[in-house]
Design a protein around this nucleic acid. Structure first.
Lengths: 125, 125
DNA sequence: GGCGAAGTTGACGTGCACGTAAGCTAAGAC
DNA sequence: GTCTTAGCTTACGTGCACGTCAACTTCGCC
């Protein structure tokens, strides 16, 4: 997959993909001098964008990606990776709890304002 | 509430509070030259930190705070505020969906790695 | 009445995640 | 064969959210 195809698929700029490569988040192969992004890169990018959405830094995401990319890791390092993954999971679960609260609060507040506006409409009638 | 008390309560620095005031997110009153943060400021700060957690910029948060601070708004502006709030709500709901997916994926992956490590332990036994 | 602690206002610095412009190359299109 | 198109590297610039330091006031305390 060329860089242009990647950009359209994931709605990012070429600069972003090159930047992620420089940070060792992606590992496109080279055909001549051009980058070709593999299936692995696509899977990783999906996780990167997801991680970003939830407020993790690229460095944190890089660590996390190791969890999804097991292969040449030593057992000791694998245990570390696992620990990091579990911490990450707890963070996400906390975030879900907070998110539920935020949604609920915002819903209430919107209902309140809605009533207020309904009051204006009534008055005019 | 003094700036120090605010900092300890919400785990932020004085610089952060002054910065938020400069961006018109907080409106502490002055006692002489010192800032005193009101109940309103505390409520707003809670929402600010929550908004940040979910990836909104301070400017977006400032807009959103108007929803929680109705009073001297014109009807037209209130309708705008409401619209923004509804958009914000949709964003949060989307985020929850993605979050659930992320949690589920990560859970699976952790289970997978856990089994791998269990395999090592078994081998040694 | 000096002095340390806490607060204040500038103003410049910093880390992150890219944006952007310059100048080069390689591949097709005509 | 040259000319657009797409991609490349290098390097400086940018926006956001503060951090950090300097140079004040203000207040309680001994």
């Amino acid at each position: 997959m060329t860089i242009r195809e990647m950009c359209e698929t994931f709605d990012v700029t070429p600069r972003t993909l090159r930047f992620y490569e420089s940070k060792e988040l992606l590992f496109p192969v080279r055909e001549g001098q051009k980058r070709l992004f593999t299936r692995r890169d696509r899977a990783r990018l999906k996780l990167i964008l997801r991680g970003k959405r939830f407020g993790f830094s690229l460095e944190e995401i890089r660590q996390l990606l190791e969890l999804y990319d097991i292969g040449d890791q030593q057992e000791t390092q694998l245990r570390e990776t696992l620990k990091a993954g579990q911490a990450h999971l707890r963070d996400l679960q906390n975030q879900r709890d907070e998110l539920d609260e935020a949604i609920s609060d915002l819903n209430d507040q919107i209902a309140l304002v809605n009533n207020l506006i309904a009051g204006f409409d009534k008055k005019r009638a």
